[in-house]
């Protein structure tokens, strides 16, 4: 493999073989967001458990660069089991830890897109936000 700081095997693996890619049959909420400058777009479907608080299933779809798509794939594996409050408390550092590589400043918005979409989706679902699309610009 060619040496590359930002594209370690894990990221390439998630990019090539995205986990939980597609749609949920019966999502509790669904939300879409984009990086207008890059054309990255991600839709996150989230299904909650009966307690109305715990995330049970996540699916995503979209297109864009490897960083944005791998981050969405990895997030879709991490979120089940977390509560909506835990999701909302996540920040940029959590995403960067999850990716496990140094992301250059210009690419941070690609990395955090999926997280922001999931968080905005949760807040819209809880009636605390009114938003059609998330945008990182």
């Amino acid at each position: 493999m060619v040496g590359s700081d930002m594209y370690r095997q894990q990221i390439l693996d998630h990019y090539r073989n995205p986990r939980n890619h597609g749609e949920l049959e019966d999502p509790t909420f669904s939300h879409v967001g984009e990086n207008p400058m890059c054309g990255d777009e991600i839709t996150m479907d989230v299904e909650l458990a009966e307690d109305g608080e715990t995330i049970e299933r996540v699916a995503f779809r979209g297109e864009g660069c490897a960083i944005s798509q791998a981050a969405a794939s990895m997030l879709s594996e991490r979120l089940p089991g977390k509560t909506l409050s835990e999701l909302r408390e996540m920040d940029r550092d959590d995403v960067l830890d999850m990716l496990g590589v140094d992301i250059s400043p210009m690419r941070i918005k690609c990395a955090v897109l999926a997280e922001k979409v999931a968080q905005d989706g949760a807040e819209i679902y809880l009636g605390e936000k009114d938003l059609d699309r998330t945008s990182t610009e």
Binding site: M6, Y7, C38, C65
Partner: peptide, 22 residues
Amino acid sequence: GVHPHDVSQILDEHGVAVRAGD
């Protein structure tokens, strides 16, 4: 199969400065 931002990132790692975007 490779997004332009990924291409330019890899190029940057090789010292090659290009522009990616619209």
